[in-house]
Structures are given as C-alpha cells and as structure tokens.
Design a protein around this nucleic acid. Structure first.
Lengths: 162, 162
DNA sequence: TGAAAAAATGTATAATTTTGCAGCCGAATT
DNA sequence: AATTCGGCTGCAAAATTATACATTTTTTCA
C-alpha cells in the first residue's frame, strides 16, 4: 500500500470514514486512516477535524459520535450575503438540500428552475426546505457551483480574471 | 443568592448561556452557571451537555465553540401523537419516503425536523408524503432508527410493571 | 537552482472532557 | 419508620483532544 501524503485526499478520506461508521475517539478513526495508507498521528486528525468542522455529539444510540457537516457556508460568513432567505446548502448523493427562511422555499426553487441548468433535473420545495435533484453522476462541486450562481449574490463572487 | 437545584431549570439556563456567548471550555460555562446560582461541577456540565446534545465545533480558523440545537422536544410533551398519521416508511438510497394520512405530512415532517438528527439533512412534505434526505453515507438502519424515535408509537415509554 | 518563508507534521505535554464509584436525597414500598 | 430503589452529583482518575515547540517538507521568488 503506497503511502499517501496529500492533505485534501486525506481529509476527503476522513470525511468519508466518518460518514460510514460511528467512532467515539480520534484514535479509532486514526486506525482506519492508517489502514488506508495515511501515515499520520492523532494530532493531525485533531487538526483535520478542526478544519472540516467535525463535531462530537452525544448520540443516544451509540454514545458519542462525530458529525461532519455538509454545510458549505463558512461559519463566519456574513448572512446578509445570501439572498432571498437561503440559509444553508447541504449535499447528499445526487441531491442538494437547501434550508431557507420560512416561506421562502418555493420562490427560491423557482429561481433555481429558471436557470435551466442541464445538470439539474428538478426541485421540490416545502416551506423552508428545497430538494434539488441533480442528474446522475454530476459531481458535488458542479452542483454546488450552479446553485451558488443563484443563491450567492453576484457581487460577492470573484470577478472573472479574463 | 438562592441556590437553584432544579435540573431542567439548570439545563434551560445552560442552553441560554450557550446561545448568548461563545465558550471554549466547560469550565468557563460553569463559571456563568455558578454566578446564576447553580452550584454544580464541571462533570455535571458535561452530563448536561450530553443530554442536550451540545456539540463542540471549531468556530473559525482558530477557537472552538459549543453549539446547541435550537429546538428541543421535551420527551413527555406530546399529549396526542401526530405519529398516528404515519402509515408507511420506505427507503431508497439516502432517502426515506413516508406516507401519511391525508393532511398529516407537514406536521410529522416538523416533528422530524425538530429532533435535529445530525444525519438528516432535511425534509420536504406534501399533503400525504414526506421525503427525508439523509446525510451521505448514513446507513439505512441508522436513518430508520432515527425516524422510529419520531414515528414509532410511544410504546417504548416506561410502562407500569408488567 | 538555492535561500527564505510558509505550511505541515510529530512529539510531548497541557488542557479538556468523560466516567467509575460512592454518597446523598427523595419517592415508593413494606 | 425503615428499607429499597433510582436518579443526580461530586470527586478523582482515566480517557480524549488540543497545542507549543521543534523539525521536516513544500512553496515562493529572485
């Protein structure tokens, strides 16, 4: 097994590991990481978890467990930079789940429908939640990028370099 | 200063304290609790946090903070359970589809939202159908277990001796 | 290139959190 | 009343997590 050393690869692996199984200590997570060829220490796991905003919460079924957020909104992001009441976007498989202020969901869903992105099959809106269904095989990042063009105000986006 | 000793009063105070200010250790939270007349120790704060499902998460690049979910569902509240309206639960990938009696969907979806399960990204309710989106990688059994805590009849509640 | 700066990591340890255990207290039972 | 039972808590120790510092690795830039 080759020794892997890429940081984002390791953090991606960490994220996946935490999603697949319940752990109650970083040491145990570390064991799995090492079996996958990431030869690091607990200190690094701790630092990775901080960067990924992993949190440890009590879980009635399993004692303690780690939870890795799918939330792409930075914690310190200015809420005003998000239009139309959208509060957070999360991803799971070929779906995106958008939480909004109460009552905003359907209007935002309409905006999403209107961009007619080829990789978006459709949306369903409740009162404060939207589910966006992406075409099969569309990478998370692509879907995220599309949705940002609707939900993030253009002024907050970096100017194109050319 | 009167010494308060009621548990739920203390946990309510803890909740409020955590919502109002950023703390990075239980000791510091404890100081505030003590100033409010709750004469306990850090161990109790730890236990309270466990019960309230408080989680510690990295705040920005540096620093940690506690996060307490905004909705609590007192265990012995629901005088009459909405969950009687749920008829069927089915799973497909990272989704659960719940069929309900006509008109019950949104009420039950709200109950599901209120448990703030970390593995549930969100729900969308129609009139008699709810779609629950789980976090990627969450095993079917875990999602099922979560939903059962809402939808299963309160037979798990303490019974008279039998 | 190579030097300097920045980033990443390990080590050892500090800081924090969790928990086993025993005592306490109140409710229920005898 | 005394006993039992069960939940809550403090104490102290164990377990876990975070970090200061040194070292190594990577990046930058001339």
């Amino acid at each position: 097994m080759p020794v892997k050393k890429n940081i984002s690869e390791r953090q991606a692996a960490l994220r996946k590991i935490l999603q697949q199984k319940v752990f109650d200590s970083q040491e145990k997570v570390l064991e799995v990481l090492r079996k996958q060829g990431f030869n690091v220490t607990q200190a690094t796991v701790s630092r990775d978890m901080r960067q990924l905003k992993v949190s440890k919460v009590s879980d009635s079924q399993y004692g303690y467990r780690y939870v890795v957020s799918n939330n792409i909104l930075p914690e310190d992001e200015n809420p005003k930079s998000w239009t139309d009441g959208a509060r957070e976007i999360m991803f799971s498989g070929n779906l995106a789940v958008i939480k909004t202020l109460p009552g905003y969901a359907s209007s935002i869903a309409t905006l999403i429908d209107n961009i007619k992105a080829p990789e978006i099959l459709g949306t369903v809106a409740g009162d404060d939640t939207i589910i966006v269904v992406a075409q099969q095989g569309v990478p998370f990042e692509v879907l995220q990028g599309r949705l940002k063009t609707v939900i993030a105000p253009p002024s907050s986006r970096k100017k194109a370099k050319g």
